[in-house]
Amino acid sequence: MTSRRKSLNSGNPGAALVAAEAAFTRGLYAVAIFVVVLLTAILVTLLIGSRESLGTIGLGFLYGKTWDPVSSEFGALPFLVGTLLTSFLALGISLPFSIAIAVFLGEYFREGALSSFLRSAIDLLAGIPSVIYGFWGLFVLVPLVRSLQLKLGVPPFGVGILTSSLVLSIMIVPYSAALGREVIQLVPSDLKEAALSMGATRSEVIWKVVLPYARSGIFAGVLLSLGRALGETMAVTMVIGNSNFLPRGIFSPANTMASLIANEFAEATEPLYVSSLVEIGLLLFIVTTLVNIIGRQIIKRTAVEV
């Protein structure tokens, strides 16, 4: 403020304003570049940290099924499978709910006390610390899943892939639901009114106009929630059973990449062991990036041209 007033007095306001504008732009650039540098730095750090395991184990790391710190044998396949299985299963479970919530709040109850109560309740779900979800899963879901397993005649562990997917699905609902509601509200009313005037029922409008129009936005929300599921650590580690074997089905205990790192990093002393754990981190980084790239392509393809 001071400098601007001064420059106004000095009779040359234009130059000073241009200079301020340029400085502002430079600042924006610097911050944006800093974020990219940070991302690259993380990748480089992971690469350097996993150098030893990349060199010693090589590609075998990707398809090795044994994780044995005692005999220094490290394979990431069980954790890769565990991570993908829990995340996509959670996504599948959460999808009907998050879309229903998005339609309900975006189309049926846009305003009013009920709507704002529901909205804040869902936002609150996103704010609950994951360790609380883990506790809830351990004390409520585990006995339920266990009794289901007893009825089905499978080993009654209670913990495992299904239990962690259920916990994850609840954790990720708010992300896809919130974004879905936003885009559904953005569907132009002209389109909806046109459909209604041609005799479409309300549900027909939703299925044939609103959802196709909002498709890519809804998918962006789904992608966001998938990213959350891939990286979730605490809640998963409490209910997945932490068994370092290739899972045989959705009831079997397993482990994920994030949970393995959280569990074993503190006590890893052997250089190859530490390096293998860092490589797990690198793998998680790559998987998340790939999922994002593929997702962006899908968003582009499904976007409605207006």
Binding site: T66, W67, D68, P69, V70, S71, E73, F157, V159, T237, M238, G241, N242, S243, N244, P253, N255, A262, N263, E264, E267, A268
Partner: peptide, 21 residues
């Protein structure tokens, strides 16, 4: 088959974090 160590390749069972876990 398993040996001694702070982390093992457990032949059976479930893992939980920490003594409280």
């Amino acid at each position: 088959e398993v040996g001694r160590g702070k982390s093992l390749n457990w032949p059976a069972g479930l893992g939980a974090k920490g003594n409280p876990g």
